[in-house]
Write a protein that binds this DNA or RNA. Sequence first.
DNA 1: TTTTGAGTTGTTCGA
DNA 2: GTCGAACAACTCAAA
Length: 449
Amino acid sequence: MSAPAVLWLRRDLRRADHPALGAAATHGDVLPVFVLDPAFFDTAGPVRQGWLAATLRALDASYEGRLCLRAGDPATVIPELVREVGAASVHVSTETEPGGAARDAAVRATLAAAGVDWVETGSPYAVTPGRVVNQSGEGYKVFTPFLRAWREHGWRGPAVEPDGVRLLAADGDPAAWRRVDAALAACPIPLPPAGEDAARARWAEFLGSGLAGYDTDRDRPDLAATSRLSPYLKFGVVHPRTLLADLQGRTGKAVERFTAELAWREFYADVLHRHPASLAGDLNPLGVAYDEPGEGFEAWRDGRTGFPVVDAGMRQLLATGWMHNRVRMITASFLTKDLHLWWPVGARHFLDHLIDGDLASNTHGWQWTAGTGTDAAPYFRVFNPVTQGEKFDPHGDYVRRWVPELAHVRGAAVHRPWDVADGYARGYPRPILDHAAERLEALARYQRR
DNA sequence: TTTTGAGTTGTTCGA
DNA sequence: GTCGAACAACTCAAA
């Protein structure tokens, strides 16, 4: 009988379409393990901890209750586990985020010294970051050519689990499971259903009724027009390759558009992989002056800026761990162009509260808004929070849903409470700033540099 | 090497 | 109300 194979799960918390699982199974009995790494877990807020906890419980069920959960530094925990069960190999999906890649390098070195094989199969992306290159062999810095090259590169079909995979049971750490359950119990917001079955159900529903209108309605925060798969994609509960395979044979603008959104996720992962320093600072520094966070930041964070669509978005984030993409742009523009704060201030807050918070997409989405990222954003692209609200929440339903102080205002007028006779009757705050003035200030700062 | 066309998501103003 | 122009300069990708 051959030695067991450890399947170390990280951002691939699923059973289906799992190339690393297949690879592990060819080596021997498979021991699925997840490590609660304090470097990641302890720094996450209660919402993100809760979503991970729910996902881990579902993952354990996917693996027939045999998920081995341990806590600690993986560089210690994984080699220990390997010794314990006499494993000859450790199987993972390739991690390309800077922190995870550094962690993997450390674990891999320790294992190599012990003569244990380290096998990387697959990644959280249809095309592993670093593989889409231009004619000079370099990565892309502009999305559109990346998209073309990404499509031309293509991707494999879903991985089918080999017959007769045998899962090995190993002692988990009861204290670690207690921490998971405590995190779940302490989660301050209601979470979506976790796990693969829930992700598949969400996807099936989107394919059946949401995809057709995706092209035209995806920008409407008042409608449920997006896939809402991002919390599952974040932990690899569903793999984009699975989605792309299901889209085969379908055509039309909506399919193209949804595929492009998946490509954006891959593009930003590629950019972060090639430019790890962009995690903490500007990819393309503009040299503009930023203010220090103060009362304006607190108003933004708490959803009381006096700009209805901004406040609706910030409150949706706090209440649900999710914010509509269009509103992420509007609120980000407000922080960077109206409050004149540096984008990492907002990016940090988003990451602390989003259950789908993806390091690469969040970082570079923010940099796009700030004009420091991959897209050479025209300096004059400053969102007007009122006209954006009127355009994308045309009936005001989104604002009324998240801002109860404005629930009595009918129609699109909710975006301009200052023009409504009883607009402030229920205590909604007055605007904390003059957008027209701050827009000019932002433009001036860009030109002054 | 040089050149050329293009670059997710906008706003305002004036005709 | 609608529509086109103006709002900078630069970098990137590819021919």
